[in-house]
Design a protein around this nucleic acid. Structure first.
Lengths: 236, 236
DNA sequence: ATTGCCTGAGTGTGATCACAAAAGCCTTCG
DNA sequence: CGAAGGCTTTTGTGATCACACTCAGGCAAT
């Protein structure tokens, strides 16, 4: 079972928001694999709350397509990624995230850029240690500390929703091929572009970064779909 | 109060889904104006159900930013549109909807195009009669019967979410200026492009159509924001 | 008449119970 | 030995109750 702790100290934040944050984090980090089925009660028990706030958190995640309710049967699970869906996700990421990076460029401070360097350093460390979880965490931090600077809430939330949907599968792909074969990211050139204040270069770097990462997943899903055209075994 | 009926005949569909559909429809059609506050219990009473399914429907709508929970006080209301947010919505619509139209082009059938003509005819009729509600309904039908042909669920839902956020304000703007001054849409040239199978022309027409419609709203919101910088009167 | 408080109605949130349906397991039959 | 059918468990859903908090309206004091 997936164990997710809940922050018991924060009193004024709504419980369902806390539950949502935990679940969203777990999904983006790929801690819940595709097709893994979860249940309200088991999640509630794992979090030490009643099923009620979990219901509301899950409802949000379903609305964001980070979870799905199987049609006839009523099981709750992480959606699988078809090639068609992944293609759309890739296109959408190419729309939103380069734009966020573009908007963030003029708003970057020295501290912001320093944080980027730190995140990238952690990312390289995780890569060299073969730490997939650490890599994904650092990569997420890198991207979203940029997006947070863009001052564009709608785009930010769109990016977050897209990551929610890609996360589980990204973990599978990266975990399968290992950190060694991951493509060289464009973080260094992006940081350099940020320092020059070259918004167009930043945008291009971000587009290239996403393009390569998503292509990796696209290749993986193509290979998988023709390797096992239909699979009816093992449910989480 | 906003009265929204609920389909009592369909038995197998989940109640919260029905409630969601009603509320979403009402929002896209602009039947619930911006800053209008609603409550779970009043909606539930109006729909003849317990507050429970309304809670879940509202939770979805909040996730889609079609509703919001006011920060300190806990009232539920339709979010207002700032200029910044509207600009992002316009950009996002320019990303998604022309692409949907592009994808739909090769999949259009004779019947699909005929339906477009019908929707456009209804739109013109509503325009000539000054029927804002009829205009918005026909316009929605026109656009989404195209989007439904694109076979791109993710993009479709993105477009729907964007319309949910724009709907309430669109109604206000169009209602204020009357149907006479509405800009000439690009529906005719779009239909012609569909018949030629010219996907690029379709895409361009859709982009122009959205651009003009949204610019109208952008002008309106700019005028409004400098007319009344702060307003503290009247709650729905 | 204005300002302060303060009580009561109304709000969203969480917990708990009831229920129909599907899942999963196991027995049983071929 | 394999598969099909019945039975128990678990699932999501809806309803209802309890609670802390907010906001409006009226009362009282200045």
């Amino acid at each position: 079972m997936v164990v997710i702790s809940l922050d018991t100290a924060s009193g004024d934040a709504k419980m369902h928001d806390q539950v949502y944050d935990r679940l969203a984090e777990a999904l983006i980090q790929g801690q819940i694999p595709p097709l893994k089925s979860v249940s309200l009660r088991s999640l509630a028990q794992g979090l030490g709350v009643s099923p009620m706030p979990v219901r509301e958190a899950v409802r949000r995640l379903i609305a964001e397509k980070a979870l799905e309710l199987q049609p006839s049967n009523k099981r709750l699970r992480v959606p699988d990624l078809t090639e068609k869906r992944l293609t759309q996700l890739m296109t959408a990421r190419q729309w939103v995230e380069p734009e966020l990076a573009y908007l963030a460029t003029s708003r970057m401070t020295r501290d912001s850029i320093k944080r980027l360097r730190d995140d990238d350093a952690k990312l390289m460390t995780a890569l060299s240690k073969g730490d997939v979880s650490g890599y994904m965490q650092a990569n997420q931090d890198f991207h979203f500390s940029i997006y947070a600077r863009a001052d564009a809430d709608l785009f930010y939330d769109m990016a977050r929703t897209l990551w929610l949907q890609v996360g589980p599968f990204m973990r599978v792909v990266f975990g399968r091929m290992g950190t060694v074969h991951l493509p060289k990211d464009h973080h260094q050139e992006m940081i350099a572009a940020f320092e020059r204040g070259d918004a167009e270069a930043v945008k291009a770097s971000m587009a290239a970064d996403i393009h390569e990462g998503m292509n990796l997943m696209l290749d993986a899903i193509k290979a998988q779909s023709q390797a096992e055209p239909a699979k009816r075994r093992k449910r989480g």
